[in-house]
Computed example of a mutant assay.
Amino acid sequence: MIEQITDQLAILGHPQRISVFRMLMRRFPDTVPAGELATELGIKASTLSNYLNALQRSGLVTQERVGTSLLYSIEMKNVQHMLEFLLNDCCRGRPDICMPSTQGTRKMTDRKFNVLFLCVGNSARSIFAESLLRTLGGDRFSVYSAGTQPTSKLNPFAVQVLNDKGHDTSGLRSKHMSEFATDDAPEMDFVFTVCNQAANEECPAWEGQPISGHWGMVDPVKTTGTEAEQSLAFQNAYGALKRRIEAFTSLPVESLDRIALQTAVDDIGRTHVEDTK
């Protein structure tokens, strides 16, 4: 047991290996293509392969092959065992010694929570999520959305869906995520990415300590075909996000601690959501 833990800690002691580990932790519970990891982290494919092999040997990362692609994800049970050993053995079962802020056990306060939805273009999926949570969450949340490569305007199909569903679209706009990284920007309590890793989109990772989740969605903007087929893709994306937002708003956010909330958010992202017209 101790030998395995020390091996894991030694592997994470390398600055680039831990950057790979951190990226996969941010994307948990999803699997991430090796090519996407290499691109986002700026690591050569051959070098990344060595890092991933080491993380696999340590038991912290698992690999699966889908077609010709190699996909990687965190082996969470082994990560939990490693952290449990550090807290129970090294910290003598008192996380308050090693984590004075006790972020892992503190409950969220009874206040309005800041939520940010991120995708690439910020023209449809994250706009849907922003509008849905603003409607379904009532006064509990202050809601924002942004993208890594925002478009100049919202997608007209997305705007039509929102209008048809009775949402107010007058204040919506496409914007860059850098707007929420300034010193005077609101501090986020929750950050959700809604881009689709299966399409190898560059899904942004958020620094800091918000509770984060990945609720990957196929980009309806990329749908081709007739106008009716394109419209249906936007309807389905809206419906699928609505189910996830409904699950999120049903959580007793005010009474759960960070660990319980993170687990619930991960479960929502892991649950298969059927298309909803």
Rank of each mutant, 00 (worst) to 15 (best):
D183G: 06
R111G: 07
C98M: 13
N200R: 10
T68L: 08
A181E: 13
L9W: 01
E75V: 09
G137H: 09
I268M: 09
P33W: 01
K222V: 09
M23G: 07
A185E: 03
L70T: 09
W206D: 07
T39A: 15
G216T: 01
D184T: 12
D257K: 07
G147H: 05
S131P: 03
F141S: 13
F248D: 03
F192S: 07
T249S: 12
Q149I: 10
S152P: 00
S46V: 14
L261C: 14
F248E: 07
T109K: 15
Q235A: 13
D139S: 15
Q63S: 12
R94C: 11
W206G: 05
T109V: 09
V20H: 06
M217E: 02
V20C: 13
M177A: 07
S142L: 10
A124W: 02
T148R: 06
K277P: 15
L136N: 04
E179V: 06
V218G: 01
I245W: 01
D257H: 09
F85I: 05
F113C: 09
V253M: 14
A237P: 00
D257I: 12
Q8W: 01
N196K: 03
V115E: 00
I268W: 05
R244W: 02
L24F: 05
W215G: 00
K44R: 12
I259K: 08
L52R: 02
T6R: 12
Y72F: 15
T224H: 08
R134I: 03
S255G: 05
E274S: 14
G269R: 06
T39L: 11
L70H: 13
D267E: 15
E40K: 12
G121I: 03
M99H: 11
E254Q: 13
Q63V: 13
V61C: 00
E274K: 11
F128T: 04
R111C: 02
I11F: 10
H214G: 08
V191H: 02
Q16E: 15
V273K: 03
L70W: 04
L116E: 05
V161T: 09
V143I: 03
G166P: 00
A10M: 09
F190R: 06
F157H: 11
Y51N: 13
Q63Y: 01
G121M: 03
H176C: 13
M76R: 10
L132I: 10
G13M: 12
D275F: 00
P204H: 09
D139R: 10
W206V: 07
P210S: 14
L71Q: 10
D164W: 10
